[in-house]
């Protein structure tokens, strides 16, 4: 159950975080896209502080898996549980539990960096930490720049600032490091590391090497 004071405090993940029972479980997930099977019988569990790196060739269903966990796709069969409860029936799921960062960055070119970050931060929690989050991602000099003028890497950082601004336990990241230079990748790794140390969870789909100590790998597209 979500902390009823969540709206007021805007911090913490509710009692789940403190009791340590937070747990994501996928059971026998089957995914079909356009009538074709993408993957089937997929199982995994994720505990607080754990990261799952999803790898696999194009079309193996990395993105589909993330969208499926977020609830944007419905699995053909199988189920997803959060703390032993069907995720869909968890109150406040998914908005109060997870950040989804897909290929598309959900940024408005006409709005400034800070306006973009603050909008989503307020939508998922409170906007107070939007500025701090931008600074965490090294955007301090670009706050008042319309996103239109930003490079791909800077845009990606702006999109990710939302994760730093609003603390939610589960991060679903689709190719988070694509278009990032070495320095920003390290910044993101630090961010994820901190999130995990605080008891968060990360599922990242990537074909680029990413350095998260203690993460597990899930390879899609191989016959199991």
């Amino acid at each position: 159950m979500r902390n009823p004071l969540f709206f007021l405090t805007g911090i913490g993940y509710g009692p789940a975080m403190t009791t340590g029972t937070m747990r994501l479980e996928a059971m026998k997930l089957d995914c079909q896209r356009g009538g074709r099977e993408v993957f089937s019988g997929l199982n995994f569990t994720l505990e607080p502080g754990e990261a799952l790196i999803v790898t696999g060739p194009n079309g193996s269903g990395k993105s589909s898996l993330l969208r499926l966990i977020a609830g944007l796709l419905t699995p053909v069969a199988g189920s997803l549980h959060w703390q032993g409860q069907a995720a869909k029936s968890v109150e406040g799921w998914p908005g109060h539990y997870l950040h989804y960062a897909g290929h598309l960055m959900a940024l408005k070119p006409a709005l400034t960096v800070l306006e973009n970050v603050r909008f989503w931060a307020e939508f998922y929690g409170r906007g107070a930490k939007a500025k701090g989050a931008c600074i965490t991602l090294g955007l301090e000099n670009l706050l008042d720049f319309p996103v239109r003028y930003l490079s791909e890497g800077q845009k990606r950082r702006t999109a990710l600032a939302r994760l730093a601004a609003v603390p939610l336990p589960l991060w679903l990241l689709d190719e988070p490091t694509s278009g990032l230079d070495r320095e920003t990748t390290e910044r993101l790794e630090t961010l994820m590391d901190r999130h995990l140390k605080e008891g968060g969870m990360v599922i990242a789909a990537t074909h680029l090497p990413i350095n998260i100590p203690g993460s597990r790998a899930l390879a899609l597209g191989e016959q199991s």
Partner: peptide
């Protein structure tokens, strides 16, 4: 631009 994804997932 993907904003619809985030709107659907939002509270």
């Amino acid at each position: 631009d993907g904003a619809l994804d985030l709107l659907v997932l939002s509270p």
